[in-house]
Amino acid sequence: METFKLKIDDRQINAGGGDTVLQAALKAGIYIPNLCYDPRLAPYGGCRMCIVEIEGTRGFPAACTTRASDGMVVKTYGPQLDRLRLDTLELLLSDHPTDCLTCPGNQRCELQKVASFLGYNQRSLKPRKSDHPIDDSNPFFNLDRNYCVLCARCVRTCDEVTGINAIELINRGDESRVSTFAGSRLAESECRSCGECMVSCPVGAIHAKNSPVATEETATICPYCGVGCGIYLGTRQGKIVSVRGNEASPSNRGSLCVKGRFGINEFVHHSERLKSPRVKKEGGFESAEWEEALRIAGDKLSGYKPEEVAVIASAKATNEDNYVLQKFTRAVLGTNNIDHCARL
């Protein structure tokens, strides 16, 4: 890839062929306030937070929609830029509630980040009250338009990432809002509940119904279909509380479906999980210690000829599990009678 140098705030920065000014800056650790930018989506230029000054360019181009180029000289802050950004933020916040503590986006909110970065501290424009009903029809996430900043990340994700196009912006101007076709609730729409929109939402407008903040994350692989999506299991106090796609995984590049994102913690922590071996006795199953269960299984299996036993392995278990199982079948039971549901 072609690389070149540009100057941002008097620092020499290396950038690559397709980088926008915003991407080049973020890669170099220079934060430019932004809201509608999502690396998975085409540049949008709607929030106007990332405006910069570029030598030789008229006005204040948005860093997210401007391609970086060799020798470019960029300024990301300055008295005028700071004022313009604050004005834009002020406008945005005049359409936004300020009940941050009770907002589901609290602490994860990119608007908060922008506001604190810019040192916003006083409201001067008249706020607009909005009372859109919350769409809570989806079992996993809510759509609360009162928090929406119309960055369109959700609708662009539903188009550019998933191709489902369950949601779109409707109406115009400050009547714009996120809507499903014909304005139905999410549960009655084309939505497939993958939650990609929720992941992209920079504020609390699309938020998980029940999602405490994880304290630790573990990179692993989704246990459902054969795509093998890379996931991070977020845990807290020994329980899985969140799942997020691993952007670095070449198989899914951060995307997930409804099962992977929302369908894991409940089965892992389900009360019906088998907790101890069980042995069938006269009156039905009884819990047993490992020693007893293994003895019954081992001793009984020892009593059969190789051609009298068979093993069914698992397409859900790990490679190591399956390896040991087939080794056991062949080396201990003495038979090749092993198969699994690959054919089914």
């Binding site: 692989i221 989704c222 246990p223 459902y224 279909c225 054969g226 795509v227 093998g228 392995a313 698992s314 397409a315 859900k316 278990a317 790990t318 490679n319 399956n322 390896y323 199982l325 087939q326 062949r330 090749n336 009678n337 092993i338 198969d339 699994h340 549901c341 690959a342």
Partner: peptide, 21 residues
């Protein structure tokens, strides 16, 4: 497009009647 998360691995591991790993 294989169905299960590790159906490919189970086959690779020889959880089949005619092959080892």
């Amino acid at each position: 497009l294989r169905g299960q998360n590790n159906v490919q691995g189970a086959c690779d591991m020889g959880a089949l009647p005619d092959v080892y790993t």
